[in-house]
Nucleic acid binder design. Structure first.
Lengths: 158, 158
DNA sequence: TGACACTATCTGTCTTGTCAATCACTTATC
DNA sequence: GATAAGTGATTGACAAGACAGATAGTGTCA
């Protein structure tokens, strides 16, 4: 590979950390996504939506909240929810005080599918990711990267 | 969020580490990709290809090598290379000993575009990722996740 | 209440990614 | 050297994503 000896690429510490994040994410998902489709019958973008609704109060969120918190879909939430709704896993409801808004609600089927998909997904992540790290490494990575999902927008950006 | 108190989701250490990887990747790229398009005029998938060719001996790789090492494109390398070739950044050449194969070679334009895009890309990654971690955290993350891009397939999977 | 700016979601259209089938070439075996 | 199996890359049909503009509803201010 000979990247480390290239004078044009100063090997800063954070660059190796970023490369690690990039590769870990890509390599794990390259295995986990086909597996999820094979075992649970849904892609990761669906599980992402279902998991958000599962975690949300009332198992429901508005379209824009779904979009903002999404990890895999930057745009196109409308069509994505269309598909998941057509599969019967979520349902659209009007928002009480705001007739522009749409509330996406997890159906019982969607609840069950989330449970099943999540249960099938976890062992794969553990095998492909968790087991490759020592407990100390797990702790270190979790601590270092927690800012990205806790504050989620804020940070020491100055 | 109240996820940590949910009895259905045992909060294993590696799960928080994985969540960190997932969110860090998504949040940083959500900023970096539009920025790269705005400043360099190419999407990340193109930079991925250009960077691989830049790092490769002879600034060239075969299609399948490009595909296997790719971080963003699991399939569809043919079409992706079509577009990059149409932009004049790479060129296809026959492989000497194997007339089935195709060698994708970085053109001088592609070389320059890589330099420019990479130079524009780095500061964004530093701002969105590097600066959010202390040097100790950078070292820890880099060390813990190095296995994903060094061995790239092996590991303590038993 | 009428005009205006703003917000939330959807639709049309184009681009990009995915999957199976195919073509061209190579290697192994007889 | 002919035939069969395997490999590398492309193609066509379809699904999904991206982006701009449209539609409908809200809130404010005169």
């Amino acid at each position: 590979m000979a990247k480390d000896e290239d004078p044009n690429r100063p090997a800063a510490l954070w660059m190796d950390a970023w490369r690690g994040v990039l590769y870990a994410n890509a390599r794990v998902l390259q295995v986990a996504e086909p597996d999820l489709i094979a075992t649970a019958g849904i892609p990761l973008s669906w599980l992402d939506v279902l998991a958000q609704l599962y975690d949300a109060p009332g198992n429901s969120l508005r379209m824009q909240d779904l979009q903002q918190h999404s990890l895999f879909t930057r745009s196109g939430i409308t069509r994505l929810v269309d598909r998941i709704e057509a599969a019967g896993l979520v349902r659209r409801e009007p928002v009480v005080g705001d007739r522009r808004g749409v509330l996406v609600v997890l159906t019982p089927d969607g609840f069950g599918k989330h449970q099943a998909a999540f249960a099938a997904h976890l062992p794969i992540i553990e095998r492909e990711f968790g087991r490759r790290l020592t407990p100390d490494q797990q702790r270190a990575v979790a601590g270092a990267l927690a800012a990205f999902w806790r504050n989620d927008g804020a940070g020491p950006t100055d």
